[in-house]
């Protein structure tokens, strides 16, 4: 049988722990028993594959999904998905969701007293190209309050969900914006111990992504787990 080449285990400090007291919701939801180390088998090195047939024509442009244009600052969010070995991750599904410019989600449980925008749903989907690149057009989301602690506000962010090549490479994360004064106060952003890892969640303003007379561009590169190098690997 073909030998399974496993994916790398994360280095300490590069990922959050499950239990993190400043994020109150972890208290009753984070596991309390030790995790069992799972050697990677064929079940973990394979994973779902999606083709472009699942995408709609405007899934990449969140400003173009309704009759009118949404209120807010139009932006372009673009980047590259690579693995820990620096190789592009092509043909992988990227799903995003976000609040509107007023900081309100189109969701029944969002009770924030801010207006919904009839021209904004906040859902986007793309598949990376052969170089692992992706690109969305959207509006800059607003900050919004949450009840984690007194006067708690989430910094503006866009949720990202990626599959990568395998069950083991699944990643759900959040992209933030440079210079946001709420970042140092946010328990979710600060749940990852390593400063370098935290800072990589912050997108960069990018003049090359910016389109003249149209929209500012932000670059957000994403790294998925890579396979262990082995001496037998050609």
């Amino acid at each position: 049988m073909h030998a399974v080449r496993p994916y790398r285990r994360p280095m300490a400090g590069t990922q959050p722990d499950h239990a993190f007291a400043p994020y109150a919701s972890t208290a009753k939801r984070a596991p309390t028993q030790p995790l069992v180390l799972l050697p990677h088998t064929l079940s973990e090195i394979t994973g779902p594959v999606f083709g472009a047939d699942i995408l709609g024509p405007d899934d990449h442009d969140l400003t173009h999904q309704h009759a009118g244009a949404p209120i807010g600052e139009r932006i372009i969010v673009s980047g590259r998905v690579i693995d820990e070995n620096g190789r592009p991750v092509p043909s992988t599904l990227v799903e995003v969701w976000q609040a509107n410019a007023a900081g309100r989600y189109r969701h029944q449980n969002d009770r924030h007293d801010a207006p919904l925008d009839p021209n904004f749903s906040g859902c986007g989907r793309v598949i990376t190209d052969a170089d692992g690149r992706y690109r969305f057009v959207t509006i800059r989301p607003g900050a919004y309050p949450w009840r984690n602690h007194h006067n708690a506000w989430r910094p503006a962010h866009i949720h990202f969900s990626l599959f990568g090549r395998a069950f083991a490479t699944r990643l759900v994360t959040q992209m933030y914006f440079p210079g946001d004064p709420l970042l140092p106060l946010d328990p979710i952003f600060n749940s990852t111990a390593g400063e370098t890892s935290r800072d990589r969640l912050v997108s960069a303003f990018d003049l090359d992504t910016t389109v003249p007379e149209h929209a500012l561009g932000f670059r957000f590169d994403i790294v998925l787990r890579g396979r262990d190098a082995t001496p037998l690997d050609p």
Binding site: P16, F50, I54, D83, N85, W97, D110, G122, H159, Q174
Partner: peptide, 23 residues
């Protein structure tokens, strides 16, 4: 190459906005 996987972040309470199309 000194690359580490992007840190995970919670899916939050409003994931259905982005993830329901693939339920």
């Amino acid at each position: 190459m000194n690359l580490h996987a992007t840190a995970q972040q919670t899916v939050g309470p409003y994931f259905s906005i982005g993830l329901a199309p693939l339920y």
